[in-house]
Design a protein around this nucleic acid. Structure first.
Length: 794
DNA sequence: GCGTTCAATGTACCT
DNA sequence: ACAGGTACATTGAACGCG
C-alpha cells in the first residue's frame, strides 16, 4: 500500500543492532504516522592514492577483519573537482564508521577516508533524496511489531520515500507555551526555584494556564502540563528560549519530583542534541528565539520586542514584568492577576510570531534539507553547507572533512568616500546579487580553482584581477550549478507570486520560500571564505571580492563617461545623479560589458552625507526618511539621542533649516533637563561579547553586568545589558547601573546631554556650521520658544 | 603631579 | 561558528610639561 505524508521529523534508532530510520509524518488526511525504514545503508569512502591498484587496497581492507563491514565496492568519485578512485565501505552499523575510517587511513594506498563524519539521518536524506518539511509518497506495509510510538499508524517502508510536488502544508497541530519561574535570588535555578506558571495556546484557538499551588509546589503543574501536551498531541511545539532555558529547566524540575517529562511521541524525555536544539521524538520543537536574528531592526531580542516589531502585540498596550519583579507579583493576590495576564500575553506573542515565522522555517528546512527542529539552531554557514552536501551528491563530489585552518584575512569590497553635504535627486544603482553572479560568470568554485602548481587546463582559465587566482572555464563548477539553480528558482517563485493576491496562504508560502532561497544565495560568498567551511577555498572568496572591486570601479568609470556625477558607492552600489535616460543607457552598457545586471534601487529626492562612509540619510520619493548607519539605527545609543537625531535629519532633509533643527535641539535639551523624557529612553544597551572576566579594559556594560551577577543574575555571552549613567565621580564605567537597579533620581542627565544628545545632533548639524558648543548653549530667553509638541506634534 | 595624546579595545553597523 | 570595511566612544598608558 501507498502512504502520502509530510515529513515532520526523523531519527535513527538501533533495534537489536539493526539500524532503523524512523520517519515521522502527517498525512494529507491528518493522520500521524511513523514509517520505519529498516534497510538504511551506512557507508564511508576510502579514497585511494593516485596510481594505486584498487583491488590491492580492497585486499588490504579485507585483511583488517573489520567485522561490521558488509561490502566493498570500487567507485569513481570527484574530490574538489578532481577524479578519484575510492572504495565504498558499507557497514552494518553507522556508529563504527569513525573508528573504521581511522584504521583504514593508515593503510598503504589509502589517501584519506571521507564521509564517515556525515550523521546517519543526513546520510539517509541524501542517498534517498528524502527532504524534511516536504511531501513524500512511500510504498509501505503495516508494521506487525509492537513499537512504543504514539501515532495513528506505524508502517514499514518497502521502498524509500519519493518526494512529491505539493506545496500546501498538512493540517499541523501547533502548541505554544511560555513559563514563569519563581526566584527571589536572581536567575532561576532548577535546583531550588519552581516553575509557577505555564501558559499554553494552540493554533486551534485553545488557551490554558497551569499554575503551581500557593505553596509554589510545581509537581502537580508539571504533571498536568505533561498530560496536556499528550492530549493535544501537537506536531510542533513552539516557545521563546525553550532550547536553552525551558526544556532543560522543566526536565530538571521533573527529575527533582521523580517524574518523567514525557512530552514526545515515544516514551523518552526531551534531549539537547550536539547541534544545540532540543529534540522531541516525533514532534518538531521550535524556538522562535533562533529566528530573531532574521529581524536586525529588533535590537534587543526579547519576545515582547519581536512581537511588537511583527505587529503581533504592541508593547505600549501591555504591561511588561521584569524578571526581578516576578516573585513580588506572584506573592501578591492582586498583582498575580497582572502576572497571569503577562504570561498569557507572552504565549499569544509566541503564537502570533509563529504565524510570521513558521512558513519561512519550513521552507528553509525543505530547501537546505535540515529537519525543522534543527534548521533554526543551525548557523548560516551550516545551512549553506547542508544545502551544498545535498546538491553535490548527485554530481559525485565527495564531502570534504572539516579541517582546522589558520585564519588569513583578504581584501573585500570597495567603499567610496562620499561627497559631504546635501545632494538633490540621487539614484542608487545596485548590482543584483553581485557576488553570486560573479561566481557564476567567472566559474569561481572550490572545484574549478587552478592552483599555480597545477597545469593549465585545455579549456583555458579565467584570471581574477589583482589577486590573479585562476579558475578553469569548463566544465561548470558546482557553485555555478547551484547558484544558477537558486537564482533561477527565486525568479520563478517571484513570477508565481506576481500572479497571486498578496496575503493569500499560497502567496505567503511562496514569499517564505523566496526568502529562504535568497538568504542561502547571499550567504554563499561568505561561506566560501569561512575557515570553518568543509569546502573552504580562500581564493574563491578572494577572487569574488577582487572581481567585485573591478566591477564597481568599471561601473564608476562608465558613469563618469556618461557625465553622471558619482557621490558615493559601497561594494555593489553606486549613488549617482538621477538622469533616467543616461542611467538606462548606463545599465545596458554595464550589462553588456560585464554580464551583470545593475538596476536602480532607491531614488532620493535629497540625500545627506557627512565625511564618514557607511552613514547617510536620504529623503525617498514617498516622503519617508531612509537612515543608514547613523545613531538613529544603532542599538547602542539611548533612545533620546536617536529621537533627536532623527528629528534633526527630518528637518534638514525636508525643510533644509539648520536654524529650526538647532532650535529643536535646544528645546529638547531643556525638556530633558526637566526630566520630561521617559526613563526607558535613557537606557543604553550593549552586548556582552565574552565572559565578564575576559575583558582587557573596564567597560560600562561589563560593570553593569557584574552588578547584576552580584545579585544572582547569571549572564551569558551574547546577552544584551541595559544600563543607565548615574551621577557620581570617576570614569564612566564607575558611574553606570543596570537600569532595573537604578532610579530616575540617580541619573546623570548632563551625561545624556553632553555625550548622547549633543554628539548625535552635532553629527548632522556640524555640516551646517553648528558646533557642539552652540548646541549646548541654553535657551536664550526669547519669549517665543518652541515646545517639543511643535516638532513632534501634539 | 596633572593634562594631553594616541593606540588599543570594544561594539555595532553596511554591503 | 558566513565575509571584509568602517565609524565611533572609551580606556589607559605614554608623553609632555619643568
Amino acid at each position: 500500500m501507498k502512504v502520502t505524508f509530510w515529513l515532520l521529523d526523523l531519527n535513527y534508532e538501533s533495534n537489536n543492532d539493526v539500524p532503523e530510520i524512523w520517519i515521522w509524518g502527517v498525512t494529507d488526511s491528518g493522520e500521524r504516522v511513523l514509517i520505519i525504514d529498516d534497510h538504511p545503508i551506512a557507508y564511508f569512502y576510502a579514497v585511494l592514492e593516485e596510481n594505486t591498484d584498487p583491488s590491492k587496497v580492497v585486499e588490504e581492507i579485507n585483511k583488517c577483519h573489520l567485522k561490521c563491514v558488509s561490502s566493498l565496492e570500487i567507485v569513481d568519485r570527484k574530490f574538489f573537482g578532481k577524479p578519484v578512485k575510492a572504495v565504498k565501505v558499507c557497514v552494518k552499523m553507522p556508529n563504527v564508521m569513525p573508528e573504521y575510517a581511522k584504521t583504514l587511513r593508515k593503510l598503504e594506498g589509502v589517501k584519506d577516508c571521507l564521509e564517515d563524519d556525515i550523521r546517519f539521518a543526513m546520510r539517509y536524506l541524501i542517498d534517498n533524496n528524502v527532504v524534511p518539511s516536504t511531501w513524500h509518497e512511500a510504498e509501505v506495509t503495516e508494521d506487525s511489531d509492537k513499537r512504543d510510538a504514539h501515532v495513528d499508524k506505524i508502517y514499514l517502508a518497502k521502498t524509500s520515500p519519493r518526494v512529491l510536488e505539493k506545496t500546501q502544508l498538512p493540517p499541523l497541530r501547533i502548541l505554544g507555551f511560555s513559563t514563569i519561574y519563581y526566584s527571589k535570588e536572581g536567575s532561576p535555578n532548577s535546583e531550588r526555584n519552581p516553575v509557577v506558571m505555564i501558559s499554553t495556546a494552540t493554533n486551534g484557538g485553545e488557551q490554558k494556564q497551569l499554575l503551581a499551588g500557593d505553596d509554589r509546589n510545581d509537581k502537580p503543574l508539571l504533571e498536568s502540563f505533561i498530560e496536556y501536551v499528550h492530549n493535544i498531541d501537537p506536531d510542533i511545539i513552539v516557545g521563546y528560549g525553550n532550547n536553552g532555558q525551558d526544556w532543560p529547566y522543566l526536565r530538571a524540575r521533573c527529575k527533582k519530583h521523580g517524574i518523567r517529562l514525557g512530552v514526545d511521541r515515544t516514551q523518552t524525555e526531551p534531549h539537547t542534541s550536539v547541534y544545540g536544539h532540543v529534540s522531541l521524538a516525533g514532534r518538531a520543537n521550535l524556538d522562535l528565539a533562533d529566528y530573531a536574528g532574521e529581524f536586525p531592526e529588533v535590537k534587543v531580542k526579547t519576545l515582547a520586542n519581536l512581537a511588537d516589531y511583527l505587529g503581533v502585540m504592541k508593547i505600549e498596550n501591555r504591561t511588561i514584568i521584569e524578571d526581578i519583579d516576578i516573585p513580588d507579583h506572584w506573592d501578591n493576590k492582586e498583582k498575580r492577576k497582572i502576572l497571569k495576564q503577562f504570561s498569557k500575553d507572552n504565549t499569544q506573542c509566541i503564537m502570533g510570531a509563529t504565524e510570521a515565522i513558521l512558513d519561512f522555517a519550513i521552507q528553509l528546512s525543505s530547501l537546505v534539507s535540515l529537519p525543522l527542529d534543527h534548521v533554526g539552531t543551525a548557523a548560516a554557514g551550516f545551512r549553506v553547507e547542508s544545502f551544498l552536501i545535498k546538491k553535490t551528491h548527485p554530481l559525485g563530489e565527495l564531502v570534504p572533512r572539516r579541517i582546522e585552518q589558520p585564519y588569513r584575512p583578504y581584501a573585500g569590497g570597495l567603499v567610496l568616500q562620499p561627497i559631504p553635504g546635501l545632494h538633490e535627486n540621487i539614484a542608487v544603482l545596485d548590482f543584483k546579487s553581485m557576488y553570486p553572479n560573479l561566481m557564476i560568470v567567472h566559474n569561481l568554485s572550490p572545484d574549478t580553482y587552478v592552483s599555480p602548481k597545477d597545469p593549465v587546463p585545455p579549456g583555458g582559465v579565467n584570471e581574477a584581477p589583482e589577486v590573479k587566482h585562476m579558475f578553469r572555464k569548463e566544465p561548470p563548477g558546482f557553485y555555478k550549478e547551484v547558484l544558477s539553480y537558486l537564482i533561477q528558482v527565486r525568479d520563478q517563485i517571484r513570477l508565481g507570486m506576481s500572479k497571486l493576491k498578496a496575503g493569500t496562504a499560497e502567496y505567503r508560502l511562496l514569499d517564505a520560500r523566496q526568502k529562504a532561497v535568497k538568504i542561502i544565495t547571499n550567504a554563499s560568498y561568505g561561506y566560501a571564505g569561512w575557515v570553518g567551511a568543509r569546502w573552504y577555498v580562500k581564493p574563491v572568496a578572494e577572487a569574488a571580492a577582487a572581481w567585485g572591486r573591478h566591477t564597481i570601479m568599471t561601473a564608476i568609470d562608465m558613469a563618469k563617461k556618461e557625465n553622471l556625477k558619482v557621490v558615493y558607492g559601497d561594494t555593489d552600489s553606486i549613488f549617482i545623479e538621477n538622469q533616467p535616460q543616461k542611467i538606462n543607457h548606463l545599465s545596458k552598457d554595464i550589462q553588456e560589458k560585464m554580464g551583470l545586471e545593475i538596476k536602480p534601487d532607491e531614488i532620493y529626492t535629497r540625500i545627506f552625507f557627512t565625511e564618514a562612509k557607511k552613514r547617510y540619510a536620504g529623503l525617498l520619493t514617498n516622503g519617508k526618511l531612509d537612515i543608514v548607519g547613523m545613531e538613529v539605527v544603532r542599538g547602542d545609543w539611548a533612545n533620546i539621542a536617536k529621537k533627536v537625531q532623527e528629528k534633526v535629519l527630518e528637518i534638514i532633509l525636508k525643510e533644509q533649516s539648520p536654524k529650526k533643527a538647532t532650535d529643536f535641539v535646544h528645546e529638547f535639551i531643556y525638556e530633558l533637563r526637566q526630566k520630561h523624557v521617559s526613563y526607558r529612553d535613557l537606557i543604553i544597551w550593549k552586548t556582552l561579547t565574552k565572559p565578564a572576566e575576559a575583558y582587557e579594559v573596564n567597560a560600562s556594560h561589563v560593570e553593569a553586568a557584574k552588578m547584576l551577577r552580584a545579585k544572582g543574575w547569571e549572564l551569558a555571552v551574547g546577552d544584551k545589558i541595559g544600563y543607565v549613567v548615574v551621577a557620581g565621580e570617576g570614569r564612566l564605567y564607575e558611574r553606570v547601573k543596570p537600569y532595573m537597579l537604578a532610579s530616575y533620581d540617580e541619573v546623570d542627565l548632563e551625561y545624556y546631554v553632553e555625550k548622547q544628545v549633543v554628539p548625535a545632533a552635532a553629527r548632522i548639524l556640524e555640516s551646517f556650521g553648528v558646533t557642539e558648543e552652540q548646541l549646548l548653549q541654553a535657551r536664550n530667553g526669547q519669549k517665543e520658544t518652541r515646545k517639543l509638541t511643535d516638532f513632534f506634534g501634539a
